[in-house]
């Protein structure tokens, strides 16, 4: 009798919540997805003990690939300590008892909701995305039968109609998140609602990317070192967002920033959306224009530790 069965007998959760047959089924879908980069593989999505929209797809994918030695990082909008990340991290701590971390480089599996870490990922890591609507053509063509056919026949003119409309109405491609990409010169794919700032990171990424959509019952994948091109026009090439200020706390440039409202008098600051990246930089001594005095941070840090 192996460990898993033993735990089962005691009325505990099976390792990582899902039963082994379900995991096999999901792993098959994942393997198929990896074999056909960007293709949406249907799978028998299970009811999870959390509502749709909380990342039930990502959770099922993560549950199926976790091993006992894995170290898990959970990201919610770039941050490790907001509701979604905390809840899902707690879920896997309870049901799998594995190590979790905030540190990007330490994690072997990273489940993310709509951001890709600023730090480069490696071949030893897997990035799992939570996907609300996997079908990039959905808002252009409501019929599932038709969108499947369009994928099969590589009939993607409609996608450019959307981009054309953007330029005609706004003067530039105004899509800023869920920006459609073409994977391996074949399938048009929705990279989940990540900001388009992260699109260049998807291209030739060293880590394996898995996308899980629980409600829509689809899994798709981008294997390491795969060509991923953001759709655009020759005279309106793809561009990422630019920020005119560095991060207020760590002074980082060329990273994705979140706007934080400070008061009701128009006060605001821009800080790294990737909280782990920001903290690491501050620990290295980088300071942005709005960072507190280093001494104050140290005192603050000490207080927190005492409370714990």
């Amino acid at each position: 009798m192996n460990d898993t069965a033993e735990i089962y007998d005691q009325g505990e959760y099976n390792f990582a919540y899902l039963d082994e047959q379900t995991k096999r089924m999901i792993r098959r879908a994942i393997l198929k997805g990896i074999a056909i980069p960007g293709y949406q593989v249907p799978f028998a999505s299970r009811e999870m003990p959390m509502p749709y929209g909380w990342g039930t797809g990502g959770v099922q994918v993560t549950a199926s690939i976790l091993g006992k030695d894995d170290c898990l990082k959970m990201i919610d909008q770039g941050s490790d300590d907001t509701t979604n990340a905390v809840s899902l991290r707690g879920f896997f701590e309870k049901t799998a008892g594995i190590r979790t971390t905030y540190e990007t480089s330490e994690a072997t599996v990273i489940q993310t909701r709509h951001r890709i870490p600023e730090k480069n990922l490696t071949e030893n890591q897997v990035l799992v995305f939570q996907v609300p609507i996997p079908e990039p053509l959905r808002f252009l063509e409501p019929r599932e039968t038709e969108t499947r056919k369009m994928h099969a026949l590589e009939d993607y003119g409609l996608m450019h109609v959307k981009l054309y409309e953007d330029i005609a109405k706004n003067g530039h491609i105004a899509t800023t998140y869920a920006y459609p990409v073409k994977v391996n010169d074949r399938y048009v794919m929705d990279p989940s609602p990540t900001p388009k700032f992260d699109n260049p990171k998807i291209d030739q990424m060293e880590a394996l990317q898995l996308y899980g959509a629980g409600r829509e019952k689809r899994i798709y994948a981008i294997p390491p070192y795969t060509k991923v091109k953001s759709l655009d026009f020759e005279d309106y090439p793809f561009e990422v967002q630019k920020f005119d200020k560095p991060c207020g706390l760590c002074g980082a440039e060329n990273v994705y920033l979140d706007e934080v409202i400070l008061d009701d008098k128009g006060g605001r600051m821009f800080v790294c959306s990737d909280s782990d990246y920001c903290e690491e930089r501050r620990a290295e001594g980088h300071a942005g224009p709005m960072a507190a005095d280093p001494a104050a941070i140290q005192i603050g840090g000490a207080t927190v530790e005492e409370t714990i």
């Binding site: 003119g157 450019h160 054309y164 409309e165 005609a168 109405k169 026009f233 005279d235």
Partner: peptide, 22 residues
């Protein structure tokens, strides 16, 4: 979608990728 996109759809479907030309 706009009249321009309606006319341009076929062009984009056969691979035209230059906004100005379309």
């Amino acid at each position: 979608v706009s009249a321009g996109a309606n006319v341009g759809e076929r062009l984009m479907a056969v691979g035209d990728r230059h906004y100005g030309n379309i």
